[in-house]
Computed example of a mutant assay.
Amino acid sequence: MNYEVIITCAVTGAGDTRGRSPHVPVTPKEIADAAIEAAKAGAAIAHIHVRDPETGKASRDPKLFKEVVDRVRDSGTDVVINLTAGMGGDWVPDADNPAMPGPGTDMISADDRLIHIKQCLPEICSLDCGTLNFGDGDNIYISTPPTLRHMAQKVREWGVKPEMEVFELGHIRFARQMVKEGLIADPPMFQICLGIPWGADQSVDTLKVMKDHLPQDASWAGFGISRMQMPMAAAVVAMGGNVRVGLEDNLMLDRGVLATNGQLVTRVVEIIERMGGRAVTAQEARTKLKLRGGDS
């Protein structure tokens, strides 16, 4: 059981979800306001993607990331900033010639995936630790060992903690290898991602197996998606982990009731407190995770 829980709120994500909920933030102001809302509700960490303000689609424009980060920092709200570094790994084979990229492909170099990280210097950035089929279409997320090693080395030089997102056991196996090679600062930080097609299923059994394969000194969190967000949050806390909620992973508060990010954080705080624990502050999270700005 974890009695001092770090809550991350993933406020918007990259999926085509704005059409399903008006609460999904799109503009830099909306995304920054969502991060602030989540922090005031009890989240210690805000996990941030950005979107094209005109279309609502996922974006990796460094200017948008910079505006969001500046707005959050200028607000005076204390929250750990965690920026995605996962954009730019999408491969969709062409229907007529699978050797060539088709519509929807967005493949860039490891350095290009980190441009906004270098500019903004968040405390944390995500590091998706392997390749994965996303959904039932032809979309493949590609993250190769050389790419991951290069990204891990660069963010360590900048003092940014990589949150190693793992979607199946092979991802944990490679993440452990990066730890062994000295590319990841102690304590290594893992996010167990459950329920994304076609990664690991969201069940207590799967969570325990993946948790048991983490390094003993690792800091770890986990999440489920959609209606399993809160049940998996409870399971994660019971197994000793930290939790992630937010509109990136789930749009609903209750059946038929659309959620805001703040409402999802409030709900998981209630769950944690009823289990006998508490949500830690942003500064406490920095100390526990040994982030830049944390107490030694």
Rank of each mutant, 00 (worst) to 15 (best):
G182E: 11
K154V: 12
M151W: 04
G159L: 05
K180C: 12
T147P: 06
P187A: 01
N133F: 12
M178R: 01
L132K: 12
R176F: 07
I192T: 08
P122F: 07
V160Y: 02
I124H: 08
C193F: 03
F190V: 02
F167M: 06
P162T: 15
R156M: 10
M189H: 15
T147G: 14
K180E: 15
T131G: 15
G159A: 03
D138M: 13
A152Y: 01
D138H: 13
M164Q: 03
L127M: 07
I140Y: 15
T147C: 14
T144Y: 03
P145I: 02
T131S: 15
Y141V: 05
D138I: 08
H171G: 04
P162G: 08
R176T: 07
R173M: 10
H171W: 06
E163K: 01
D186A: 12
C193K: 09
M151H: 05
G130C: 06
G170F: 00
L127Y: 01
F174H: 05
T144C: 02
K161M: 10
S143W: 10
L132I: 05
N133M: 12
W158Y: 13
M164H: 01
D128R: 09
L169K: 11
Q177Y: 10
P188Q: 00
A152E: 04
E163Y: 00
E165N: 05
A175I: 06
D136F: 09
L127R: 09
G182K: 04
P122I: 12
C129E: 15
M164T: 07
G170V: 00
D136P: 10
N133D: 12
S143G: 11
D186H: 10
E157M: 11
C129N: 12
M151L: 09
I196T: 11
P145Q: 07
M178P: 04
T147H: 13
P187M: 00
L132W: 09
Q191M: 14
I184V: 08
E123H: 03
I172Q: 01
K161Q: 11
L194C: 01
L183F: 03
A185L: 11
I172N: 02
C193S: 12
M151G: 10
L183S: 06
Q191S: 15
S126R: 02
W158A: 14
E123L: 05
N133W: 13
I124T: 08
H150M: 12
E168S: 09
L169I: 10
V160P: 07
G159K: 06
W158N: 08
K161D: 14
I192G: 02
S126E: 08
L148V: 02
P122W: 08
I140P: 08
A185F: 08
F174L: 07
T131D: 03
L132C: 12
G170R: 03
F190T: 01
M178E: 04
D128P: 14
I124V: 09
Q153S: 15
R156E: 11
K180V: 04
W158L: 15
G130Q: 04
